[in-house]
Every structure is written in C-alpha cells, then in structure tokens.
Design a protein around this nucleic acid. Structure first.
Lengths: 252, 252
DNA sequence: TATATTTTGATTAACTTTTGATAATTTATA
DNA sequence: TATAAATTATCAAAAGTTAATCAAAATATA
C-alpha cells in the first residue's frame, strides 16, 4: 500500500512539478502526517526536494536548442557548410531541405525577403522556417522520429511526386566515389531517394569525416550530385575523382 | 506555499511581460511586502528585472511559448480548460489534438509515462509533444499556415481515414446549440470535419466567449460532441439545452 | 489464531513564514 | 529643488508548517 502510494506521489509530482502537502493529502486521502513520511522517503531516493509547505520535482525538464547543439560533432564545420549554401537559394525557388545536423544552418544566413517554397521533413528546419514570412512551408513525412528529429514515413509517393523541386540540400551518413551518398535508415532513405529522383540540382552538404565511407542504403550517386559542399580537409584521394566528374566541389 | 507562488508569479510575468507590484499583490492576494520579498528571490534566479513600481520580464534568448502566448485572450481560462483535459488521455489512446490556443495546454499536465499515439496539425502541439518519449507523434497537413500555426491542406482524405482515432480534443471559433462547432477557414474545416467523422469521442475545448456565436463553417453538431469543457461563465441559455442533450458539460 | 511489526492519524510543542506597522532612505517628476 | 511615491529595513504578532510522541489500526509472520 505504502510503496504503491509513494510511487503514485512521485508520478503526480513528475507531472505537476510542484505540490503543497495539503494538496497531496487531499489527492491521496491520507493524513498530512502520512504524506510527510512518504515525502521523507521520497526525498532520499528521488529527485524531489522539500520546501516549506510542499515539494518540488527538480529535474532538467527543458533541453534548450543550444544544449542539443553541444553534442553535435564537427559543429563549426557544419555551420560553415550550411551557412555557405544560403546564397544558392533564389527568389521563387522550390527547395528541399533535408533532416540532419547540417542542413538547417542554411536558413541562418538566408535573406528573409526572398520568396520561395521550402519543403522539409526536419522539425529543426520547420522551427527555423516559420520565422520567414515569405516562405511557403511544406512538411512531408508523417511519423516523428526522435533520433533524427524528422518526420519519416510517407503515406504514398504521390505526396512528394506532385512537387516540382528545383534544389535539394541533402545530408548523408556517408559518401564514397563508388557508392555515392548513403544513410542507414530505410524510411529516411525512401524519402531521400524520392526527392533526388525528382529534383533538378542536388547539393550534398557533408563534413570531411563522411568521405570514403559507405552506409547501408545509397540514395544518390556521384554523377547525380550538382555540388558537394564540405570543409577543407578532404583527402586528395576523394578530391581528384570528384574534380574529374561533372560534380562541383566546394571546399570551405 | 511560497515556492509555488513564486513560480506562478514567474509564469504570470512571462505572459504579461510586465506588472506593477500593486497588480501582483491583488492578483496573488498577499501583502505588498510579501510580493516584494518574492520578487527579490525571483530576480536572483530568473530573467526578471526590477523597475521602479513594478517588474518586467526581460525576454530570454530562447523562443518561449510564453512570448507567443502574450496576445492570446482569455489565456488563463484556456490554460485551465486544456490542462483539465489531460486526465482524459489514457494508455494506448489514439488522440487527435486540434490546432488553436487552448488544446496544446492538454500536454502541460499529462503524465509523461503514458504511451499513446498523438495526431495533430498544430506546430505548438508538435513542439510540446516531442518531449514525450512514449508518444508516437504523427503530423497531418502539409502546408504551414502562419495565422493558426498549423499545417493545413491534405493531399487526400485517405491520409486521415487510415487512422482509428478514439479521442479528439477540438477547438472552435464559435459554438451554438443550433449550428454546433464552427470555424472560419475552409482548409482547416476540412481536416476538422474528417477527424470528427471518424473519431469516437469528441471533446470540445472552448472558453465561455465562444458560446452563442456561429462562424462560417460548421464541422460538428452538438449531438456528436461527447464532452464540452469550458470555464464557468456560460449563460444559462446555453447551459440548459446542453444539459438536456446527451453531451456532457464541464464548467471549470 | 496469536503475536510482532509496520503504518497510520491525532496531538502538541517548536519552528518558519507571513503579515502589517513604523521609520529611514531612495527615486521620479512637476 | 520640493514633493509624492516607492523602497528597504526592522520588528513583533499571527498564521501556517514541521517533527516528535503515542496509541490505534492494518498487515505480516510464526
């Protein structure tokens, strides 16, 4: 009985963040005394703090955007790569911005006056894009995937196929001369493939650590990529073949 | 409870941006002296600044929901209505949360442990829902509409029709006994209608100012609504007919 | 079933917060 | 600069909270 109630109290506090002892007494129909004893036990084991007259649940509830960025590797390279691509978006473009930790930076330096259509499946891109008054924002994908902060899973290919996209800014888990741009998630791969099949200019935004690797599913080959934007540090073994191809290489 | 009041003061200021000490004294029913002491504590921990005769909330760098809430009328009623509905969401429910300024509050007091599927077209709901680890989050609608912060326009009705939703928490521009729940945007109306045609239990979350009015398009009639949740202040002229109907009425 | 153990609620004394009053000081502005 | 209003500091009374004690009730164990 007691253990069960203590657990319930913990849950109650998790949701409400804070509560007075009076409130808990009424809610759990026990005496103030009992609540006190329960709270005494809880404060030992849980992240609950006692304050005069009540309790507060202390656990970092808010993870800020900046905090999330802190765990991104090669952040500054990615920022540079993304921001460099802002210049490629022109008036009346129909643009696809991929999910990932690089592509959303494209919007950071983008002129707020440009009118264009932005198609994306990335929640980070969506939240940055809503601030652009002249952007027509379209989301594709249905089911939210926490690990990539993107909406994956599309009900039918027609949803994507009806858009005439002229520029796509893509991310990738890996890139190699032979296997092109690849990633590891099947649902995401399906969207990437559908986009790349339809778009005129594919921009691949990857930092130098992605080169010479291959992930599970290829979604696009080297010859289909219009421009690769990356940071300086790519080995000559990869630079040479790209320079021989018709794909443009930008080293930042 | 001191801690609770201080927290409430902080929230109050987040919404109002600024307040005089007199105003705070009246709102929280404590002495000026106590408010002063509370403010002193708050200025240490929060982004609140003391000015002569009052306090101001200095806008923080994160995009807070509170900032957006600033211009919402009847905010406290809406918060109460939304938060009250948290209890209706149970394990394994498939829930639709409508766009609007009330419905997203449902998530504020919701148990983070409950596993359920959440379908929505509201960006505010999406951004609150991503913090729930046990929620399967599905977005419907494609094109972002700034005025309602929601995704409207769906490529085909099948997208919605494939979900078996059992509870829908709906907002409305207006509600009347004869014309039911109505709103003014055609694209939004289409989604609302599709949802209401398929869902088992329709909860209508509206503040008292919406009663006795009719907007352009009706999406749902009184007899189809399971429960109306509103604040106390609804005229008897509307309360009586609802109580006679099979629709439940909750006055907060 | 009887007995030990735990949990509970009532009581109360010790303690903390809140309050309002007063007086001295600071601040805004006419 | 004068004046009114706001602020700070201090204090003691009032109100609310806590922790300790103890007996009754519930529960577990022999």
């Amino acid at each position: 009985m007691k253990v069960k109630r203590i657990h319930q109290i913990e849950n109650y506090l998790k949701n409400k963040q804070e509560a007075s002892l009076e409130e808990l007494k009424d809610h759990f129909n026990v005496s103030l005394n009992t609540i006190r004893r329960d709270i005494n036990e809880l404060t030992k084991s849980s992240t609950i703090k006692k304050v005069y007259g009540g309790v507060v649940y202390t656990k970092d509830n808010q993870v800020t955007e900046a905090f999330e960025d802190r765990n991104v590797s090669h952040l500054e390279e990615k920022r540079k790569i993304g921001q460099h691509c802002a210049q490629f978006i022109k008036q009346h473009d129909i643009v696809y911005l991929d999910s990932g930790t690089t592509t959303h930076f494209v919007l950071d330096l983008l002129d707020k006056e440009i009118e264009f259509t932005l198609i994306t499946n990335s929640l980070e891109v969506i939240n940055k894009a809503v601030k652009f008054q002249n952007v027509t924002l379209i989301v594709i994908g249905e089911t939210y995937k926490r690990s990539t902060k993107s909406f994956t899973g599309i009900s039918d290919d027609q949803t994507i196929n009806k858009f005439n996209i002229n520029k796509a800014f893509m991310s990738a888990t890996a890139f190699s001369i032979d296997n092109g741009a690849s990633n590891s998630d099947l649902l995401e791969n399906r969207i990437k493939k559908l986009i790349c099949d339809r778009v005129q200019d594919i921009y691949l935004l990857i930092d130098d650590t992605k080169f010479g690797k291959t992930s599970l599913y290829t979604y696009c080959n080297l010859e289909d990529i219009h421009t690769i934007v990356t940071n300086n540090g790519v080995a000559q073994a990869y630079v040479k073949p790209i320079e021989k191809s018709k794909t443009k290489l930008i080293l930042l």
